[in-house]
Write a protein that binds this DNA or RNA. Structure first.
Length: 219
DNA sequence: TGCCAGGCCCTCTTTAGGGCCTT
């Protein structure tokens, strides 16, 4: 089973293009459903945190003042996940901050990580869920609580548990032995009706005929 | 509590608009 990193950023706002910066990053390394590593750090990017964000995340300006420089934290985070594909909930958000923060380290910073998104996958796999917020999906699946919501490690832990559940459901529903990262990236762009065919195509060279997913029955 | 953005997805759609989701 290949290792993936489940990442979550806390930030000063929604858009690095508008000047927002990361304030905290957490990464949970998963090997299958097993947690094999954790990285978490506040970071000081030299920007003020609004009262709304202080209340939303619990991360205060005082906490940030005492944190290591953002560049140091991001360099360490990049080393931590070198060669490891990443997963996030609403990954387009975390991918933007990942790229923007690593861009500040210079052109040599490794930021070309393939991201998979647990929100897009959940929309495909769980049409009955209703809401696709991380906490809503955690409740929907009765995932174990992981601490204060909207802190990076707690959210990364919940997203990691959600990813494990997604992989488990793909494997059980489509009778495949694994749901590797490349398949997850493909499925998050695949319409729900086409999931069986996409999975079958992915595994067609590896699965014996008797284990091929039955795409005629749909999902 | 939510504005800023951006990508995805649904529908009263596709020559568009608005809601969801992330902080």
């Amino acid at each position: 089973m290949s290792v993936v990193g489940v990442i979550d950023f806390e930030t000063t706002g929604l858009s690095p293009a508008m000047g927002d910066r990361a304030t905290e990053v957490a990464i949970v390394l998963l090997d299958g459903a097993q947690v094999v590593g954790r990285f978490q750090s506040l970071m000081n990017a030299g920007v003020r945190i609004s009262p709304f964000i202080e209340q939303y995340t619990g991360i205060s300006n005082e906490m940030i003042r005492a944190a290591p420089p953002a560049e140091d934290v991001m360099a360490e985070a990049a080393r931590f996940v070198r060669g490891v594909p990443l997963v996030a909930h609403n990954a387009s958000f975390d991918q933007r901050f990942w790229s923007a923060e690593l861009d500040r380290l210079g052109p040599d910073a490794s930021r070309d990580h393939p991201f998979a998104c647990t929100m897009l996958l959940s929309r495909r796999l769980y049409p009955q869920a209703g809401s696709y917020r991380l906490q809503s999906l955690a409740s929907f699946h009765a995932l174990p609580p992981a601490g204060r919501a909207h802190r990076a490690m707690a959210d990364a832990e919940v997203a990691a548990a959600l990813l494990s559940r997604i992989r488990q459901d793909i494997q059980r529903e489509y009778e495949v032995d694994a749901a590797p990262h490349a398949l997850l990236v493909r499925l998050q762009r695949t319409q729900r009706k086409a999931l069986p065919k996409a999975i079958q195509a992915y595994f067609s060279s590896a699965l014996p005929a008797s284990r091929q997913p039955d795409h005629e029955n749909g999902a």
